[in-house]
Amino acid sequence: MLPDNLREHPVAAAVEAFDADAVSAGKYDRKELTLETPPAKLVSVCGFLKYDRKFVRLSTVTAVDRYPAEPRFEVVYHLHAIEPHQRLRLKCRLRGEDPVIESVTSVWRSADWYEREVFDLFGIQFVNHPDLRRILLPDDWEGHPLRKDYPVTGTRV
């Protein structure tokens, strides 16, 4: 459900009008709009935002690990509309065991490397990604360093 204080916001209201179930939460904080969407709705919401609301750029895709809380992962998408200039943060929450989400490479090709990076460093799987391999770390690397349960220092025994 869209929070009441966001009903006035044109983008939030438009997403709500597009699909009443597409927004599970949202906030407008420090002049930045964040919308949360259920993982199942992600690709359709992204398509709507790109083609109907002119968010032609996907600035970046990243993730936040809330370990040990559940749902553990937040996959965060930063969208950018050029004319008029606008930014939007889109979020999906995923549970810790076997995190899987649909890839948005079909909407923006730039998602390719960003999703590979999230897969590499967080171990989140992207379904329908054209080439899901590690990108920054070697292929035989064990573990996913940006997870909170991955140590910063130490010797492997």
Binding site: D29, R30, R87
Partner: peptide, 20 residues
């Protein structure tokens, strides 16, 4: 507590910091 995305124009293009 909170999260921000700050974009600036670096010599190479959009440099964004997402800080949580």
């Amino acid at each position: 507590e909170g999260e921000v995305y700050q974009a600036i124009e670096s010599p190479r293009g959009e440099l964004g910091f997402y800080v949580v």
